[in-house]
Amino acid sequence: MDSRREAIRGVAGCAVAAAGGAAGTLAWAPYGRRGIFGGFEGETEWNVLWLGLPVMTLGGIAAGLTLSALVQRKWRPALGAAVLLAALAGFGAAFDVLDGPPMDCGPKC
Score class of each variant (00 low, 15 high):
residue 32 G to E: 06
residue 32 G to P: 03
residue 33 R to I: 15
residue 33 R to M: 10
residue 33 R to E: 11
residue 33 R to D: 08
residue 34 R to H: 12
residue 37 F to H: 08
residue 37 F to A: 02
residue 39 G to L: 07
residue 40 F to V: 12
residue 41 E to N: 15
residue 42 G to I: 11
residue 42 G to S: 12
residue 42 G to Q: 08
residue 43 E to A: 13
residue 43 E to P: 02
residue 43 E to D: 09
residue 44 T to Y: 03
residue 46 W to M: 14
residue 46 W to V: 15
residue 46 W to L: 15
residue 47 N to I: 11
residue 48 V to R: 02
residue 48 V to A: 01
residue 48 V to L: 02
residue 49 L to C: 07
residue 49 L to D: 05
residue 50 W to P: 00
residue 51 L to I: 11
residue 51 L to E: 12
residue 51 L to S: 10
residue 52 G to Y: 07
residue 52 G to E: 05
residue 52 G to M: 04
residue 53 L to Y: 06
residue 54 P to W: 08
residue 55 V to R: 01
residue 55 V to C: 11
residue 56 M to P: 04
residue 56 M to V: 06
residue 56 M to N: 12
residue 57 T to S: 05
residue 58 L to E: 05
residue 58 L to D: 05
residue 58 L to S: 08
residue 60 G to E: 03
residue 60 G to C: 01
residue 60 G to L: 01
residue 61 I to S: 00
residue 62 A to S: 08
residue 62 A to N: 07
residue 63 A to I: 02
residue 63 A to Q: 06
residue 64 G to F: 02
residue 65 L to A: 06
residue 65 L to C: 10
residue 65 L to V: 09
residue 65 L to P: 00
residue 66 T to F: 08
residue 66 T to P: 01
residue 67 L to F: 13
residue 67 L to P: 04
residue 68 S to A: 14
residue 69 A to H: 04
residue 69 A to C: 09
residue 69 A to N: 06
residue 70 L to E: 10
residue 73 R to G: 03
residue 75 W to T: 12
residue 76 R to V: 13
residue 76 R to Q: 11
residue 77 P to D: 05
residue 77 P to V: 04
residue 77 P to C: 04
residue 78 A to P: 03
residue 79 L to I: 14
residue 79 L to H: 01
residue 79 L to D: 07
residue 80 G to Q: 13
residue 81 A to E: 10
residue 81 A to T: 13
residue 81 A to R: 08
residue 82 A to Q: 09
residue 82 A to G: 14
residue 83 V to S: 10
residue 83 V to T: 14
residue 84 L to Q: 06
residue 85 L to H: 08
residue 85 L to Y: 09
residue 85 L to Q: 12
residue 86 A to K: 03
residue 89 A to E: 00
residue 91 F to R: 03
residue 91 F to H: 07
residue 92 G to R: 06
residue 93 A to Q: 12
residue 93 A to N: 11
residue 94 A to Q: 14
residue 94 A to V: 08
residue 95 F to N: 13
residue 96 D to H: 13
residue 97 V to W: 05
residue 97 V to M: 09
residue 98 L to A: 02
residue 99 D to K: 13
residue 99 D to Q: 14
residue 100 G to I: 09
residue 101 P to Y: 07
residue 101 P to F: 06
residue 102 P to F: 06
residue 103 M to N: 10
residue 104 D to Y: 11
residue 105 C to T: 14
residue 107 P to V: 13
residue 108 K to T: 12
